[in-house]
Amino acid sequence: MQKHERKKWGLILIDNIASGSVKKITYKLPANIKRCKGFIFSGNVEGSSAKNYVLGRVSLFINNRKSQPLNYIVESKPLDFLRRKYETLKLEEEIEAGSYVQGYYEDLASAVSFPYKIRIYLDCTTNTTDNKINNG
């Protein structure tokens, strides 16, 4: 049996965000995830064009609060603006297996409608065991 790495997305859902609210984030990496190396932030509504499509601000600690790699402004543009591929925001320090991702999301009162949701995608890898025998 061979072990090899496979990409796996983690998903943190921040739901029911009201204007001016602050939401706590606590997420434990599932047991089958080996490490995570990047983020994507996505809102399900757009931010006001007058405020550069800003929705809110996220602050994250990783690896059980050993480091704080992210203080980030989350933007959300209209779906009609969809252009290039989404790309992950890469972390210099990887998120370790079994650790917590913790922090806060603060709404900046510039979404076009409330309440709304933010999804935080974690770009992770998992070890899988390949039981198949490769035939030459």
């Binding site: 998903l11 603006f81 252009r83 591929k85 995608y121 899988t128």
Partner: peptide, 29 residues
């Protein structure tokens, strides 16, 4: 093999028409 988990937004694998066809694909698989 799971490619996307439950709740993965479809918009993350779409691009605008301005993107060259070869660059539109989610290719981390």
């Amino acid at each position: 093999n799971e490619i996307f988990p439950d709740g993965f937004e479809v918009k993350l694998i779409q691009t605008g028409q301005e993107v060259s066809p070869n660059k539109r694909f989610y290719d981390d698989i």
